[in-house]
Amino acid sequence: MALTAARRPRSPWFAVRRDLSGGRTTFLTVLSFLVPLGLWCAISYVPGLWQPQMRVTSAGGSETFDLGMRVPKAQFAEENADLVAAGKAPAVGEPCNPVFLPAPHEVGKAMYKAFVTPPKSKGDKWLHEALLHSISIIAWGFGIAALIGVPLGIACGVWAASSRLVEPVVDFLRYMPPPTFGALALAILGINDEPKVAIIVIGILFNMILVVANTTRQVDRGLLEAASTLGARDRQLVTRVVVPAILPTLWNDLRIFIGVGWTYLTVAEMVGASSGISLFINQQGKYRNYDNVFAGIILIGMIGLVTDQILAFLGRVLFPWTGAEPGPLTSACRRLFRRGKS
């Protein structure tokens, strides 16, 4: 009798709370970037897919059209009909998208050009200087917020008294939109970077206290009880149990708050003397250099994504006990880290 080897059925792509295989994970990650990029390319490069306008390449006999001007297709046809009726040479043009949607290659070129082109006027900053300035605002704002918010949040999570004293008022404060503090920050802290940092701090701090307190309250009471039957005193319960127990979750909380910092950055940078990447984007918008605007926005996204991925990776190296299956790079770094410690 012939034995047919039972073929294992392929596992489904959608299975509730199941992990995907490594290959599928990578595939989907790449796809999540490729889909919007592909759409953008299609709209930009496939003739007639959208292209509601005509770019004038030769004005012909027209007096209203200029070289390079973008006009709606209907208007272009109307004008040409008039020109032909009047016996003049018709204008020549090619279909194009509106100016606010530059093609990918234009944005790519703009991104490169923005880094290598010196600023127009002397006092202005290079793009990389503007970016570094933005990053430093976020670093200060996030750093100060974490320095206050993490200990205070832990205290609220550990002691009911701290929680009752701090959390009600913080709950009240966090509903005030940070930008509304702009004028106040300006009056108190001057027009330089200080009010900008203050707005980031306000944007992060209050929510951070509540989130860290909540994270702290999630610590398994059984661990605290076990520690106290092993002779741990109150102070040791905090330093030896609560803090190490929350570290992995706290790490992820902080990653999210760095992201929150970026969302308040544009508002913060407009307070007082405008600066940083927001100033760059706003100026380019005014000049109608939308390729540069896109370049700036995409840069922010890339910086955010890259820092977050680095932090996520560091988390896997630092907290091996969370049980996530480590990749080869993660295990190598863990070994290095362990050797460094001992």
């Binding site: 398994d220 059984g222 661990l223 009880e225 076990a226 520690a227 039957t229 092993l230 149990v241 190490p244 127990a245 570290l247 907290f319 006990w321 969370t322």
Partner: peptide
């Protein structure tokens, strides 16, 4: 008075 719990309660980070 040492204690052993049904749920182990080992410190996962150690």
């Amino acid at each position: 008075r040492g204690m052993v719990f049904q749920s182990y309660t080992l410190f996962p980070w150690l």
